[in-house]
Design a protein around this nucleic acid. Structure first.
Length: 595
RNA sequence: GGUCCCGUAGCUCAGCUGGAUAGAGCAACUGCCUUCUAAGCAGUAGGUCUUUGGUUCGAAUCCAAACGGGAUCGCCA
């Protein structure tokens, strides 16, 4: 609730509770933003009150009107005027109030003293990153920045799934077909090189299965007995046994992949404070499962496999250790969670993982709870929807996956073409221009993805993702650059943008709207933290940019003749630029000084 | 089949702790660059908020069911 809502609310509660002998706690006032077609800044919905007090809206409205006009704020009236339409009391606040709010507005929020670990990305090391990872990365990174802006201490981590049969498949294929190829010799990015052999594996595997089926073997049997699969399985066993040749190859190929991932992360502008590797944590998970078995949290079947019985939580049985004693996905997530808590003692953990794993995390959190970890209740799965393409769902087997590196290159190319088309580039160096194209292209891509509510499945249309007009990242960047241009002009004339302004007699409507938007910044950050949704920030940034553009169109700034008003407007747009830049920062988008 | 998520304009999305005539952008059509960046501003047109029932003074919003789309229920990760 904002300041004026609190003041008005207190005042009305006091009045009503005294006059009508009702408890203050029963008085629930509903505020909403006044609709455009009515005059006012904020609207109090009084249906609830009229019902509780058994009064007609006009009678109550008149009483409240008189009351509101007496409220003082810093020596002047808080409320300029009100009007009642049915059960809606539209309230216009005084300009003095808004200007005071603007002067005291801060874009810094107090520290909460809470520590949050955000896990995101979590790639497998057998193939390059794709569009799905991009949504994941942008969400994780943006949520981290939002939490930080809201005052939390944030630790960004990724768990790298660096071990398992999928890696062995790439390794086997590289051994068979690779002829010693390396990123250097092939000129391929390391993750793409390893991905190439994962594809080669799959191709060989399917050929072998088809051949076995031709020879009369059943399909299921053929799938299990294809020689190349057996080679991969054998390699996994050798890996687990610590075979040095296998380990060396594994390390080599994984390092190629890490080099590739890091390059992609850097282009995307995301980062991590710490990496966890499944190869380091899966054994801890196994120990913890065995402890849990002793404590009766799990049970062992005759074949030796270990299970969690979650039927009392309306879930199924879930395997946590295979009959041969090796770990499954759940095992290592248990280990990682425990290790991480020991390391950070965090108040909250957020797992940014796609919604296809809703069930997995539900189970994981229950198991952690049953193992006796009270922090299990502070674990949260930030579940996001799949990314669809206009052609349908992404499927790696059908080659319809959008590669992350290709996509980044494409949006930058798109930004370059469209910017050159507009022909608005200042005389800047080629390097500076390229940097700008990257800022704009990625701004478009990030905004396009983050403006959608994380929980929803989204359609990714490559053409629309590089749009520069309308509700897009570049529109917001442009609004910021426009202000910067004005401020440069002011600086050239030795005008001090940060100097104190004198209060204009009357605010223009577009000025007032811009101020209202500016002072709601901190509330928006808190809402975004509450909802863990960068989309909230996107909407805010867009609204703020729209408000600025309307103001810009209605009011002169540098051409304003009245010096005091000019000074005020310079201040106002300066503050707007700051807020725009901060909001963009929260969604990982750069704010160019000119464009 | 069980569980979970989604269904709003031609398209992509807001709005969902119940409130006024359901909002943006794109696409279509009209205006506005001899004053601060037209990547902009103003406007026209476009909707039985999937359907049905319920709760309520009031439902896109809450509840139930149906229909449609998706995910998941592996000793894969």
């Amino acid at each position: 609730m904002s300041l004026h809502e609190n003041i008005i609310s207190d005042s009305i509660s006091e009045y009503v509770s005294n006059k009508y002998q009702v408890s203050k706690s029963d008085i629930n006032l509903v505020f909403q933003q006044t609709r455009k077609e009515f005059e006012g800044d904020v609207t109090l919905v009084i249906f609830g009150l009229t019902k509780m007090l058994k009064l007609a809206p006009p009678a109550l409205g008149a009483a409240l009107d008189a009351l509101l006009l007496t409220i003082e704020f810093e020596g002047g009236p808080l409320v300029r005027s009100t009007n009642l339409v049915q059960g809606f009391l539209n309230i216009s606040l005084s300009d003095a109030y808004w200007l005071s709010r603007l002067k005291q507005n801060s874009l810094e929020l107090p520290k909460t003293g809470k520590k949050t670990v955000v896990e995101y990305s979590s790639p497998n090391t057998n193939k390059p990153l794709h569009l799905g990872h991009i949504r994941n990365n942008l969400l994780g990174h943006s949520v981290s920045r939002i939490l930080e802006a809201a005052g939390d201490e944030v630790v960004k981590v990724q768990i790298i799934n660096d071990r398992g049969i999928h890696i062995c498949k790439s390794m086997v294929a590289w051994q068979k077909f690779g002829q010693g190829e390396t990123p250097e010799s092939s000129g391929l990015k390391g993750d793409h090189l390893v991905g190439k052999y994962y594809v080669a594996y799959d191709k060989a595997y399917r050929a072998e299965v088809a051949e076995l089926v031709d020879k009369g073997m059943g399909e299921d049997e053929a799938k299990a007995k294809a020689p190349i699969l057996q080679e991969a399985q054998n390699m996994l066993r050798e890996w687990e046994a610590g075979d040095s040749a296998v380990k060396t190859l594994w390390e080599t190929m994984n390092n190629w992949v890490y080099g590739g991932f890091n390059a992609t992360y850097e282009r995307l502008g995301v980062s991590f404070d710490k990496n966890y590797y499944e190869s380091n944590t899966y054994l801890l998970g196994k120990d913890k499962v065995l402890e849990g078995l002793d404590k009766g949290v799990f049970y062992r079947k005759e074949d030796g496999s270990v299970w969690a019985d979650l039927s009392d939580a309306k879930l199924d049985q879930k395997v946590v250790l295979r009959s041969d004693g090796t770990s499954v996905y759940m095992t290592q997530d248990i280990g990682t969670a425990i290790e991480r808590y020991q390391e950070w003692q965090m108040d909250k953990t957020i797992y940014v993982v796609g919604n296809e794993q809703d069930y997995h995390f539900k189970v994981l959190f229950i198991i952690l709870d049953r193992l006796g970890y009270d922090w299990a209740k502070q674990c949260y799965h930030l579940s996001y929807g799949m990314v669809d393409l206009p052609s349908g769902k992404m499927k790696s087997r059908e080659g319809t996956v959008v590669d992350a590196d290709d996509l980044i290159t494409e949006v930058i190319t798109g930004a370059r073409e469209k910017t050159l088309e507009l022909g608005k580039l200042d005389a800047s160096s080629p390097a500076e221009q390229e940097a700008l194209f990257a800022q704009i292209g990625l701004g478009a891509l990030k905004y396009f993805i983050l403006k959608v509510d994380p929980q929803k499945r989204m359609l990714f249309n490559p053409e629309e993702s590089i749009d520069l007009n309308g509700n897009t990242g570049p529109f917001i960047q442009y609004s910021h650059a426009r202000i910067k241009s004005i401020l440069r002009k002011a600086a050239a004339l030795n005008l001090d943008v940060t100097a104190e302004w004198k209060q204009p007699k009357v605010l223009e409507p577009t000025e007032r709207e811009l101020i209202q938007q500016l002072v709601s910044y901190s509330a928006i950050v808190l809402e975004a933290r509450e909802k863990l949704s960068p989309a909230v920030v996107c909407q805010y940034a867009y609204d703020l940019a729209t408000n600025f553009n309307r103001f810009y169109h209605e009011c002169h700034i540098m051409n304003e003749e009245r010096a005091e008003i000019k000074q005020f407007r310079l201040n106002l747009v300066g503050l707007t630029a700051d807020a725009l830049k901060r909001a963009l920062f929260l969604i990982g988008v750069d704010a160019p000084e000119r464009m």
